[in-house]
Design a protein around this nucleic acid. Sequence first.
DNA 1: CAAATTTGTGAGTGATTACTCACTTACTTT
DNA 2: AAAGTAAGTGAGTAATCACTCACAAATTTG
Lengths: 173, 173
Amino acid sequence: MTEKQKEILSIAMELFAKEGFDAVSTSRIAKSANVSEGLIFKHFKSKQGLLDAILQLGQEAVEGLLTSLKEEDSPKEIIRQVIQMPFDMDEEQYHFWRLLYSLKWQADVYDESISEPIKEFLTQAFRKLNYGHPKLEAETLLILMDGIATTVLLKKPKNQNRLMKHVLNKYNL
Amino acid sequence: MTEKQKEILSIAMELFAKEGFDAVSTSRIAKSANVSEGLIFKHFKSKQGLLDAILQLGQEAVEGLLTSLKEEDSPKEIIRQVIQMPFDMDEEQYHFWRLLYSLKWQADVYDESISEPIKEFLTQAFRKLNYGHPKLEAETLLILMDGIATTVLLKKPKNQNRLMKHVLNKYNL
DNA sequence: CAAATTTGTGAGTGATTACTCACTTACTTT
DNA sequence: AAAGTAAGTGAGTAATCACTCACAAATTTG
């Protein structure tokens, strides 16, 4: 991948995440990335193709995270890691997730395939801990994490740490 | 308010909610509402003005809900009502909330003024019930409700009732 | 009833959109 | 070094965008 390709992807992800896919024009992306507009279409075929490439890269990064979860077998540790996830994101992850969350609301593009495997792990973990309704418990925790991710992505609250500890405490961690 | 005005507002809210503010053109709104495009601008000045009018109406409807919460003084009942909120929406409320939630992700328009008063009520309720950290508890519940509202608005899950009862059960209700 | 105001139309506006294309420049391969 | 391929440019395109405006129809007011 060329330097300019990487630059286009990086700038586009940041702009899409901050302002929304529809609100950012290919001409603005080209200017911000110091690249001719034509190059975007040479490499990514269309604006949608550019978005697809961004999502593809992010998806692969997420799968890396999942692998480390898979190797963990202590149920308490699995739950702890899931709860901690939204609280430690670097800037690139931050942009990716913000983009992904904003795309949920665009017509019919919602995709829950990312959280589905995590739900499986959580269900197993709650079952091992003898929770009454492990699947429902996993769904509820995931929904809570979705809410937490949303507030972190949108509001960057100051007392994230207190919130995290409070949630961990609710699950005796 | 004219019939055509109401029609414009209703159609625009539905389209904005389903496809996003940027993705819907004034020309499409006019066609869907069987109205000339000029009329939209005569009544609402700009596309942004149309959005503002929609949000204004929704805001007023929400304030009605808050009033009934205010009159409730049993802490358990307050918490129960907050938890039940996202599970009973009529179609118009559904469109309004979906629009509001999608707008969160547009650049810098996020507005938490709607949930702020609810947070106050909840904090008081948790305090009355001798929870250790009533404010943190209220924040956490609101974040969970935000996550639940998101899944209801996006996925319309089949077993909403089981989820609701599970959450109520977590708060001994 | 007449005047005035409001409601409504539809053809137009310049600006911006995603995208194309003929072309040059840089790098690889033989 | 010659030929072939990939990277990159920038001016152009038709379509669509939000918005305006001169005007007509309907309604309200004096």
